[in-house]
């Protein structure tokens, strides 16, 4: 599904939320929207979904303006999701399956619920679901009709590390099947992991867009992991320092934490957890920060601000 934003402008009164945005996404591409709160990311996506009408410019999906037909091919996972609490997960997915005219919605729902380990709760009332379970259910709903375009707004917020991994794998699978991806997230590492191209948006303007390599330019990149343990293990430093992926390691005993710098993509959260477990260490939290993309984002934003001043 090819998407074109042409001089898209959306105003709310005197406030310009999106300002002459031009962007083109090829079919099957994965694109990340970066930007601080109020930058215009959500407004752009809601205009793409037809919730807002543009004041000027247009959005074309496969050369067509947005309509009910095009929206049928889009899957959406919003950051803050709302559900019919009085329905069970199965009933809820059945409703959306019928709405999107999915032929084998029940089987699809069953497979997706199993993938995200929600199958046991298929007949539970959604009102009783935890935040993470609701997030996963929202993702299943977004995928139930095998969309050609998947829009994800903060797809992993509220999920535990294992859940993040499950969801990321599912999204990547969808992408491999040809689904175009648009991800909007504050978690820059997530963007970096999932998309091939990013756009940085601030104050409604698209400041820069291109491949992650283009955006980074010559900047040195590394991933910074914060690994928290149940109790601080002083003897773990040697084992972690000896690992292939470790570039540097720092101790933070007050927080029962080691801070590890690693090559980007050299290690996943799950692999790091398993590595610690092999060495008899129980992790309570794993947090990754991609220093490179974040730094580039801040730099581009600052430059842009200076230009505006």
């Amino acid at each position: 599904m090819k998407i074109e934003f042409k001089d898209l402008t959306k105003k709310f009164g005197t406030f310009t939320a999106v300002d002459k945005l031009n962007l083109s996404l090829e079919s099957g591409e994965s694109f990340g929207f970066l930007g601080p709160n109020g930058a215009g990311k959500t407004t752009t996506l809601l205009t793409l979904l037809g919730i807002y009408q543009p004041d000027s410019g247009q959005i074309l999906i496969d050369g067509q303006p947005v309509n009910a037909g095009t929206r049928r091919k889009i899957g959406v996972v919003a950051e803050y999701q709302t559900f019919y609490d009085e329905m069970t997960a199965r009933e809820y997915l059945d409703f959306f399956g019928r709405l999107y005219q999915v032929a084998d919605a029940q089987n699809k729902a069953k497979v997706l619920l199993e993938r995200l380990q929600l199958a046991d709760w298929a007949d539970a009332l959604i009102g009783n679901f935890s935040t993470g379970m609701k997030k996963k259910l929202g993702i299943v709903r977004g995928l139930i009709h095998s969309p050609e375009l998947l829009i994800l707004d903060e797809p992993v917020s509220g999920l535990d590390p294992f859940g993040i991994m499950q969801v990321r794998e599912l999204i990547q699978e969808q992408h491999k099947l040809g689904t175009t991806l648009i991800i909007s997230s504050h978690v820059l590492s997530e963007i970096e992991k999932t998309v091939s191209r990013v756009g940085i948006i601030s104050k409604g303007k698209l400041l820069k867009e291109g491949s992650i390599a283009d955006i980074l330019g010559g900047q040195k990149t590394f991933s910074q992991w914060q690994v928290q343990f149940l109790e601080f293990p002083p003897n773990a430093k040697a084992a972690l320092a000896a690992a292939d992926f470790t570039l540097n390691i720092e101790e933070m005993p007050e927080q029962n934490t080691y801070q590890i710098q690693a090559n980007p993509g050299s290690v996943e959260g799950g692999a790091l957890g398993r590595f610690a477990l092999q060495h008899g260490l129980i992790t309570t939290q794993l947090h990754r920060q991609d220093i490179s993309l974040e730094a580039a984002f801040i730099k581009i934003s600052e430059e842009s601000l200076q230009n505006l001043v």
Binding site: I51, A68, R71, R72, I74, Y80, T82, Y100
Partner: peptide, 17 residues
């Protein structure tokens, strides 16, 4: 109020429907 309607409007549903 809750936003469930917005979710429907992301899909093939319009105000008329």
């Amino acid at each position: 109020d809750k936003g469930t309607l917005e979710l429907l409007f992301y899909g093939p549903v319009e105000s008329r429907q």
